[in-house]
Design a protein around this nucleic acid. Structure first.
Lengths: 214, 214
DNA sequence: ATAATGTGTTACTAGCGGTAACCCAAGTCT
DNA sequence: AGACTTGGGTTACCGCTAGTAACACATTAT
C-alpha cells in the first residue's frame, strides 16, 4: 500500500503550503491587500504556477490566508467572551481585545476586511451579501451563539441573538475602523463609550435644552 | 468677455458629465463594482480617453458616481432623523429607511460599500482608515452631528456622539448586510430588534437559568 | 533501462487601467 | 481668403495583472 507514501507526500505538501502562506503573509503585510501573485511567489522564492497548484486561484490563497488570522482573532475573542466576570466586564474585554488586535496589526486587519474582489470573468451571479468580509460574518455568528447561550431573551431568542450578534460586531468594526483612522481618543475611552451605547445610554439621555424644533 | 462662452461650454461639459455618469450607473448596476472603464465607455457610446478627461481616473469616476447615490440616501436619512416624533420612532424610521434603500437596490448598495481598490502603482502609504466606504463615514459623521445637537450627553459629548454615530451606523450596516443575504426575518422585525439593542435590552436581559459556568 | 510522478521553470494569453499621439471640425485672428 | 488655436474624438500603445500551457529535471517504481 502507498498510504505511508501518501501521508509522507501530504506532509511535505502541507509544509510547503505553510511556507507559502507565511511568505504570502509577509508580502500582504508589506504591500497591503492588492499584493500580486508575482510578488508573493517571488517572496516565497518560487514562481507563480506553484502558487496556483496549491491554492487554485488568488481568492483561494487569500481565503487560506484569511482563515489563519481569523481563527487566531476568534480564539482571542472567545477567551475574552468566556472570562469569569460580569457581563459589562466581559463586553468591555471583548471590545478591547478586538481593538487591540486591529491596532497592533492594521495591515492584517485591512486585508481581512477587504478580501477578494477577484473573479475576473463574468460575475453576473452577483450574490449580494456573500461579498462581505467573512471575518465579520464569523464574528457575528459566534457572538450570536454566545448571546443565545447565555442570555434569557424570551421567545424568538435565536433570531434576536443573531441580529444582535451581527449588529454588535458591525458596531465594533465600524467604530474601530474610524478610530484607527482618526485616533480621536484612547482605546479605553472608546471601549467605555461603546459599552455605554450598548448599555442603553442613548435611550436614557435627556433631550438637549433649547434644542431645535420643539 | 468670454464669461458667457465659458458658462456655455461648462454647461455642455456638465451635460456630458451627467450622461456619462448615467451610463456608468447602468453598467455598474449590471456588472457590479468591478465594471471596467471600457465597458462604461462603450455603454456611453464613446471611448476611454474621454472618460479619463472627465474624471481623471477610475476612482474619480467612482467617487462622482458614489456621491450621487450617497447624497440621495443621506437626504432620505436626514428626513427620517428630523421627523417630528419621539426618539424611538425616529430611530426606527431611520433604520427602516436605510434598510429599505439597500433592499430596493442591492447592487447600488454593494457598489457604494466596495469602492475603489484602485491606485495601481506603489500604494505603500497605506492609509488605513481612508479605505473604508466613504458612505459609512459620512453617515457616521452626520448621525454624530444629530446626536450631539439633540441629546444632552454631559461633558465630552462631542466625542461620545461621534463614537456613537459611527458605531450605530456600523451596526446598521452590518446587520443590514447580513439580513440582505440571509433574509432571516422581515424588515420590521429587524428594525425592532436593532432598536431594542440600542435601547439597552442587552444589558437588561437576565442570565439564562442553568447556564454554563455560573 | 524505462516509464511514471511530482516539482519547477519559461513563455505565453487575455484583459485591465491609463496615456501619447494623432485627427478633425469649428471658430478666430490677420 | 488663409493660417491657427481649441475642444471633442479616436487609434494604438505601455506596463501591469491573473491565470495557463508546455516543457525540463529529478526521483522513484517497475
Amino acid at each position: 500500500m502507498d498510504t505511508t507514501q501518501r501521508t509522507e507526500q501530504q506532509r511535505s505538501a502541507d509544509r510547503r503550503r505553510r511556507e507559502l502562506l507565511e511568505a504570502a503573509d509577509r508580502v500582504v503585510l508589506r504591500d497591503g491587500p492588492q499584493a500580486s501573485m508575482n510578488a508573493i511567489a517571488a517572496e516565497a522564492g518560487i514562481t507563480k504556477p506553484i502558487l496556483y497548484r496549491h491554492f487554485g486561484d488568488k481568492s483561494g490563497l487569500y481565503a487560506a490566508l484569511a482563515k489563519r488570522h481569523t481563527d487566531a482573532l476568534l480564539n482571542s475573542l472567545r477567551a475574552a467572551l468566556d472570562a469569569p466576570a460580569d457581563r459589562r466586564e466581559r463586553v468591555e474585554a471583548t471590545l478591547d481585545t478586538y481593538l487591540a488586535a486591529i491596532e497592533a496589526r492594521p495591515q492584517v486587519y485591512r486585508f481581512l476586511m477587504h478580501p477578494a474582489d477577484g473573479s475576473t470573468g463574468a460575475d453576473q451571479g452577483f450574490d449580494v451579501g456573500k461579498h462581505s468580509a467573512p471575518l465579520l460574518r464569523r464574528m457575528g455568528e459566534e457572538l450570536a451563539q454566545v448571546i443565545e447561550d447565555r442570555l434569557d431573551l424570551g421567545p424568538s431568542s435565536q433570531q434576536l441573538a443573531r441580529v444582535w450578534g451581527h449588529g454588535i460586531v458591525g458596531m465594533m468594526h465600524a467604530a474601530g475602523d474610524w478610530w484607527l483612522g482618526e485616533r480621536p481618543c484612547s482605546r479605553d475611552e472608546l471601549v467605555k463609550s461603546l459599552a455605554d451605547l450598548l448599555w442603553g445610554r442613548l435611550a436614557a439621555a435627556g433631550d438637549k435644552v433649547g434644542g431645535p424644533g420643539f
